[in-house]
Amino acid sequence: MTRLLAAVRVTTAFRGIVTALAALTAMTAAPPSARAATEPQAPADFVSLRSVDRTIIQEMRYFTPHNFVGERIDGYRQPLCLLTRPAAEALHTAQRQLLRQGYSLKVYDCYRPQRAVDHFVRWAEDLDDEAMKAEFYPNVDKSRLFTDGYIAEKSGHSRGSTVDLTLVRLPAKPTRPYHPGEPLVPCYAPQSERFPDNSVDMGTGFDCFDTLSHTLDPRIQGEQRANRLRLKNTLEKLGFVNLAEEWWHYTYKPEPYPDTYFDFPVSAGSLTHHR
């Protein structure tokens, strides 16, 4: 009798294992298209900028806590610049021209998923979170970020042909990492006092919420103005259009997706279906 009961228990346990294995097999056997459907993918004409030009410097700020929010932004899973192919190829042409002049492009942000824009909006609505105010918006009341146009519910970056960038004089010096909690300096302070960036002096740092960031602000003169115009003139000849309120912001025209705001994450995985 004891042996019979033991045999029954073994058989029951074996059947349980078989059932569990069958369920696991069914899950893993789901077609790739069904699994991929849980995460949006980039259209086939999106590329990694590095696959088009490996010499352009990349300092993807929203993958780091060194930005106006003070933490990595939603949707930035890797520090990559993703763009539509026409925009990436135009940057490659600009880079070839600038290298001959002793400069390199450096990108801060490229394609930006809608979930990142949503993160900006949530942050802007939280008026108590001013951790990075002293650097990025020292003269702007946070309650006015929407009214003054610094934050919006949609961004041209999400269409894939807009890029935030600057110039670096070669040979490029390394940029030290930002350490959360370190003392902050206004983004419009003299370059020697601002957070050390290996770029040329544009008069303000990147993402400076201030009218001094307007590309042709008359208060910006001398070398700073010359640097802005070098970037502007180079890119505009190749089809880029500058946003007048931000010296770093350019959109390639005509845009392949002028009315589409994508939400696939910034990662190499978003491009895997291209292979």
Score class of each variant (00 low, 15 high):
T166H: 15
T162E: 01
G75C: 06
Q78E: 15
P177S: 04
D148S: 03
L21N: 14
F195N: 04
M60T: 08
R54C: 02
A152L: 05
L229S: 09
T234R: 01
T175E: 13
E193N: 02
S48H: 12
K232M: 10
Y111W: 15
T93E: 14
L127M: 12
N242E: 13
T211K: 14
G203D: 06
P186L: 04
P138G: 14
L216Y: 07
T38P: 01
G156Q: 04
V117R: 07
L21A: 13
G75F: 08
T162V: 05
C110Y: 12
V107H: 00
A30D: 01
R169V: 02
L212I: 14
A44S: 10
L80S: 13
L167H: 03
S192G: 05
A189I: 01
L91V: 03
F63A: 15
A26C: 14
A172W: 05
M1E: 03
R96L: 15
A6L: 08
P43K: 12
D126M: 01
V10C: 06
L91G: 11
D210Y: 03
S161L: 04
W247L: 10
Y257E: 00
E89S: 06
F136N: 13
D126C: 02
P65T: 10
R122F: 00
D197I: 07
P43R: 13
G70E: 10
C110K: 10
R85W: 02
P196Y: 09
P258D: 02
P31Q: 07
L105V: 09
K173S: 10
P256C: 04
M202R: 10
H92K: 14
H249K: 04
V69R: 11
P113W: 07
A22V: 07
R228I: 08
H119Y: 11
L231E: 06
H92M: 08
K173D: 08
L145K: 09
E236Y: 05
R9K: 13
P32A: 00
Y108K: 00
R61D: 12
L212P: 09
H66E: 06
